Simulated scan of single mutants.
Amino acid sequence: MATRAMSPVLLIGGSGQVGARAARALRRLHPDLPLAIAGRDARKAAAVAAEVGGPTTSTTADVGRDDLGLDRGASFSAIVALVKDEASNAVKRALADGVPHLAFSDFVSEIGPVVAHHVARPTRAPILLLGHVLGGTATLAALHLAQDLRSVDAIAIGCVIDADDRGGPASQADFERNEQIGQAALFLQDGRWTWARGDAAARRFADAEGVERLGHALPLLDVVSLAAATDARSIRVDLAARDAAPRRAGHVTELVVEVSGRGHDGAGARLRYDIVDEDSYSGLSAYGAAIATERLLGLAGGPPVGPGLYNPESLLDPARAVARLEELGPRVRRTRGVASG
């Protein structure tokens, strides 16, 4: 697809595990899209830029600096923050420049600063909240299933990763921050918001091969996105770890999305997606970030997005997002069963 002339998309953290994969995904989707790979390590950023190819440059960037450590006068068509923007410098730069911003690393309890910056300047730029599991892919898959039901009762999302899949430094910092603040998991249970820890946050579910896994709920934005978009009374997102298979090279990530409710015939139905990616969990996260970025810029699925505060389901068509995900490589299997009750 030809890309209209524009300034580069700035990927802060673009040399990390998610960022590098997001850059490669964007290059596959849009061969002519200018990208700027930004990180604190100039050599690592340059190496990723060279690998991605096309109109890709590299630069140093640090979200801890007011000016992000960028060259004076540099312009960008969008700012994608794939690391925690603790001082809100990335969102402030996007608002000042009036360009789209993607906030990728905020837990459900951490969105206050971004929301406040939007409220202060609501007409400056589009801000997309993407602190969802695996870059919003699970939420969009759930909503695609929900379109085939007359009513939705429950949504259960399970993510299975290898026990030794630690992600990159940015991902590890997210998990460590969550542990330090002692944040409880958030889920919707029988119509009530519930914060829980330990055994109270645990759930068993079957992975893509039918193996039972023990997962624990996470405090991610999927639950509030899906609660606002559906009439479901129970919603949760759980993460489970499997022992790495000794004969398997590399990581595998499984995303299990189950939506139950009433079909258009009035009968109980349970719809399920099993999405399997032959990569670490950074892979699906990166695909979600890439699909969201192209939408913000108006490169696919509609015109460029105007100023506002958005969740992924506000901007992305679920069916198109799932199809785009399949284009990028993950295996997607859909099944239908009968819901009890």
Rank of each mutant, 00 (worst) to 15 (best):
S58F: 11
G13C: 12
E176I: 05
G16P: 09
A156T: 13
T253Q: 00
R72E: 14
L70T: 04
D317M: 09
S15D: 10
I111L: 12
G215E: 11
R197E: 11
L220S: 04
H30V: 03
L29H: 11
R204Y: 03
D32W: 14
R27C: 06
T57Q: 14
L316Q: 02
A142I: 05
R93N: 00
G19H: 00
G268I: 12
G337K: 09
R333D: 13
L134K: 02
I127M: 10
Q180Y: 12
N89A: 12
A267D: 08
A45I: 14
G263D: 08
A201I: 03
A202V: 08
A241I: 00
T139Y: 00
P303Y: 08
Q147P: 06
I157A: 03
A38P: 01
Q189D: 11
P312L: 07
R65E: 08
A96C: 06
D231W: 02
Y287S: 03
P219F: 08
F205Q: 07
P219D: 07
L134T: 09
A25K: 04
P169S: 13
D317G: 04
D231G: 15
I127Q: 09
G53S: 14
A217F: 02
L145I: 12
A74Q: 12
I12C: 15
V114E: 10
D162N: 14
S260M: 11
G261A: 05
P122H: 01
R242Y: 00
R43K: 14
F175K: 08
A20T: 09
V256N: 11
A292M: 01
A241V: 05
G198S: 13
R21Y: 06
Q189K: 12
L134N: 07
L145F: 06
D174I: 08
I79M: 02
A36D: 03
V52W: 10
A94C: 15
T194H: 13
A20H: 13
G39R: 04
V114K: 05
R197I: 08
E212W: 03
E51S: 12
P100F: 10
E326A: 15
A74K: 03
I275K: 00
I181W: 01
V322Y: 11
K92V: 14
V223W: 06
A269Y: 00
E209A: 06
D265C: 09
L82E: 05
S260C: 10
W195R: 07
H118Q: 12
A201D: 12
L140D: 00
T137I: 12
A228Y: 04
I37C: 13
G98S: 10
R65M: 07
D32F: 14
G53V: 13
G215T: 05
S109T: 15
F175I: 15
T137F: 06
K44R: 15
R320T: 08
A249K: 07
A241F: 13
G168E: 03
G39C: 10
W195T: 00
I79V: 15
A146I: 07
T59E: 07
R197W: 09
G73P: 06
E326I: 04
N89T: 11
P304S: 05
R27T: 04
R177I: 01
A5G: 08
A286M: 07
S15V: 00
P34W: 09
W193A: 02
D274G: 00
V48E: 10
E179N: 09
E258M: 08
E179C: 09
S260G: 14
H30N: 13
A269K: 07
L143G: 05
V80S: 07
Y287G: 02
R331M: 10
R192H: 14
V18W: 03
V152E: 00
A49K: 08
P55H: 02
